[in-house]
């Protein structure tokens, strides 16, 4: 459903992505791993054009989205995103956070959105927090609410950018559990993560990124058992 075709990105003279190509199928769980600064976030953000690639093309469902004629807002409703820093809207209650875009962007009726939003918040374990404002939620609760917010648009794919990196250790698990439950339910998940055991357990495939290059693209069993490249092997030795 997602295809990257020679994506390069430079900030000034600094080339952050170097001709990255790859495919992600519908329903697949892909983990993107690699050293910090290797371009993982930039790559992820290119998929919904929060970063505009300097060259190369991004295809979603066969449509090239970095074509000027494409309605990028419509594409973004198909590809949700979950951020390291949660980025909940602090001036809205948890439920309003979840139902705002379905109502204002997708134009679904308010009562329908409320039913959907409450159901999703219950699913991520926030049934009692509908009317709480984000500053009063814990980190883990914020991230679970952010996942519910992304799900409320009923996207085909969700991009996760280090969703547990800003969390206290005791809250990592509750977020990973929500993501585990979501995996292999039909939604495509692209997850930038440093949680190697989670990637190993949940991901179908792994992309290993180093210095802006897609160095290795392997099924996750293969990647973690016997990485095909030296650079990936060295990286795994360091982090495992």
């Amino acid at each position: 459903m997602i295809r990257l075709d020679n994506i390069s990105k430079s900030f000034g003279h600094h080339q952050v992505l170097k001709e990255v190509s790859g495919r992600i199928s519908q329903g697949e769980v892909l983990a993107i791993i690699g050293p910090s600064g290797s371009g993982k976030s930039t790559l992820l953000r290119s998929i919904n054009l929060l970063e505009i690639p300097t060259s190369g093309r991004v295809y979603i469902d066969g449509i090239c989205i970095n074509d000027k004629k494409v309605d990028i807002e419509k594409i973004r409703t198909k590809v949700g995103m979950v951020f390291q820093q949660f980025n909940l809207f602090p001036h809205m209650t948890t439920l309003e956070n979840v139902i705002y875009a379905p109502i204002k962007v997708k134009k679904i009726p308010r009562n329908e959105a409320q039913k959907l939003g409450k159901g999703l918040l219950e699913k991520v374990g926030l049934g009692g927090k509908f009317n709480t404002y984000p500053p009063h939620l814990s980190g883990g609760q914020k991230q679970r609410a952010a996942i519910a917010r992304a799900l409320a648009m009923e996207p085909e794919a969700i991009l996760f950018d280090e969703p547990t990196s800003a969390l206290d250790p005791e809250m990592v698990k509750e977020v990973l559990n929500v993501m585990k439950a979501l995996a292999h339910t039909g939604i495509t998940m692209v997850i930038v993560t440093h949680e190697m055991s989670f990637a190993r357990e949940v991901a179908d495939r792994v992309w290993f990124l180093d210095e802006g290059q897609l160095v290795e693209d392997s099924p996750s069993q293969v990647f973690f058992a016997a990485p095909q490249t030296n650079r990936a092997r060295e990286f795994l030795e360091k982090v495992l």
Binding site: N48, L50, E73, K74, R76, T77, V79, G80, M81, F83, Q85, F86, N87, L88, F89, Y100, A101, K104, V105, K106, A146, R149, A150, M153, L159
Partner: peptide
Amino acid sequence: VDKGQKEAALSLGMS
């Protein structure tokens, strides 16, 4: 306003 707010809004398809 935190830059993440804009990114979250855009990623939800807001104009």
